[in-house]
Structure formats: structure tokens, C-alpha cells
Amino acid sequence: MTTLAHIHRDDEASKLGMWLFIFTELLLFAGLFIVYGVYRYLNPVAFHLAAEELSVTVGMVNTIILLISSATIAMATTAVRKKNKQLTLLFLMATLFLAFMFMANKYFEWKGKFSHGIFPGSEDLQRLGHGDTLFFGLYFFMTGLHALHIIVGFVLITIVAVRVNNNTLTFENPVLLDNSGLYWHLVDLIWIFLFPLFYLIT
């Protein structure tokens, strides 16, 4: 017991470290947003027409799914502090389910595009021209990179759920849950900007 009590732990530093990582992620996506902005500025007509190919409904449903999942993981951080293990697990499971739903929607969305011959390097896209190639290239890269973050978040939240389940993550050391929550909110934050840029502004 005495050795356990002496394990050095600095939750404030862990959180700061997580935020520093989040800053690098923000800079990464900001770079991509600049690329998008500049190409949109240089190819306004092609970007306008290409953006109308995307379904606003699918985009909106996915936005709402991610917003709810952000709220559920935030509520998990409250539940763990109220020492309610069952509810913490329930909120984490809900988050995982919503993440899965998001990916399922993304899968059908991409599949629809592929079946219409729209994918990076496709002949149809090359025929449509430079602007469309740029728009869909950025669309697949940015939503793809975002989807990759969803998968990483899914793994992270699964680890948290397992640790909550076997009592190695409790109200005494919720920092892994807090940091996973921060990461998940970052994923939400990026989508909040991806949605209007690709789906709404036509």
C-alpha cells in the first residue's frame, strides 16, 4: 500500500500534455483548411458544383451524431466523479455506439461516391476537370483523416471502458477518461468545421 501511495502522478501535467497534442492536431487540420480555402478561391465554380454532389442530410445526421457522442462522453466524466460505475459504462458504450453509427454513415456515403465513379484518381473525376479533382481529393483526404481520428478515439474509449469495468479507472484517477474525452471533443470540433465547408457552402 505504501508503495502505491508514492507513485508520482501529476494530473494537471497530463492534461496539459493532452492539450499540447490537441494544438498540433489543430495546426494539422488548419493547414488543410487553408489548402481548401485557397483552392476554393481559385476554382469557385468547380467547387460550387462539386459541393452540391454531397448530401446535406447525411452531413447533418453525422454532425448531430457526433455532437450527442461528445455530450455522452462529457457526461461519463461526471458519472465517474459521482462514483457511478454503471452509468459511466453506459455513457461510454453510448459514445462507442454513436462513433460506430458515424462510421457506418461515412461508409455508405463513400460507397455511394465510389459507385458513381468518384474516388481519388478515377477516370470520371479526371474528365470533370481540375477543380472537381481538387474538391474531391480534399474531401476524401480530410474526411478520411477525420475518420481515422474516429477509429483512434474508438480504440481509446474502448480501453477506458475496459478499465472502468475492471475498476482500474475510478473517481480517484479519472485522467485517462478526461483526456480521451478531450480527444473526442477535438474530433467533434474538427467535424464542426468540416461540415459547413464541404456540405453547406455550395
Binding site: 455530450a71 457526461m75 461526471t78 479519472p174
Partner: peptide
């Protein structure tokens, strides 16, 4: 160096979620 034990009520998160939607 415990993590801050400030607990946000569930209700606040639900309100923010409603505004976001």
C-alpha cells in the same frame, strides 16, 4: 496533484447539446 474534482451536472451538458443541435 489530484485531478480537479469539479463535477459538471449532467443537465449543463444536455443544455449545451441542445443549443449545439
Amino acid at each position: 496533484h489530484q485531478s480537479d474534482n469539479h463535477t459538471v451536472p449532467y443537465k449543463s451538458y444536455l443544455w449545451i447539446l441542445a443549443i449545439l443541435i
